[in-house]
Amino acid sequence: MSAALHYPSYYPSYFSIEDILATNEKVPCKFEKTACDLGFLDPSGGSKDLEVGTKLELPCWLARALASRRQIVSCQLPKTFRERYREILKADAALVDLHTLSPHFYELGQHLLPLAGPEGTTLGLLLVETLRERLRSIMDTSLNTTEDDAGTRQSKLDQLERSLFLTGRKTFRDHQLWLSRRAHIVTTSYMVTQHNKRKFSEVS
């Protein structure tokens, strides 16, 4: 049984694991108001309160909550989304190792949009352009690589691209199966295979 082909989280759902992981990336923030009794959040501070002007890297979810209404903190973009890296991505996005740069590049980018202020438009364009630049080769390799190569190809993709890549591979395999008239053959269910593999490796 094939359930949904991939689990996109670009429509962020409350329960999405991907989305929770993406919103955990750090964002550089500066406190604009004093937060009482929360000095322990800044390990180098040592004072009881978080004073005005304290610079701290907060996870994206916290930065968004604090920056939105009362503007308790002001945020900067993480360095991956700043001018220098934007230039690199503009030069040739297809060659960049997005996974090491930021494993949830697009996802995080979208969450940063409301924090980006005047840079918001540039950031939005960057996300779209980057994906457009890279999608072609992702699709190409997902349909034309051998099983051994797939691992190395995948290692430079961000999470969203990876799910696209795997979806491509799965549909390609299904298509091959159908062409060779083998699509009707009942096979062992996927989870059982995985489960047995583990059992054998534990025994040996």
Binding site: F31, L62, A65, I72
Partner: peptide, 11 residues
């Protein structure tokens, strides 16, 4: 002056 901390903890 407690508002920022309340906000943070709530988040």
């Amino acid at each position: 002056r407690y508002f920022p901390s309340i906000h943070l903890r709530h988040a």
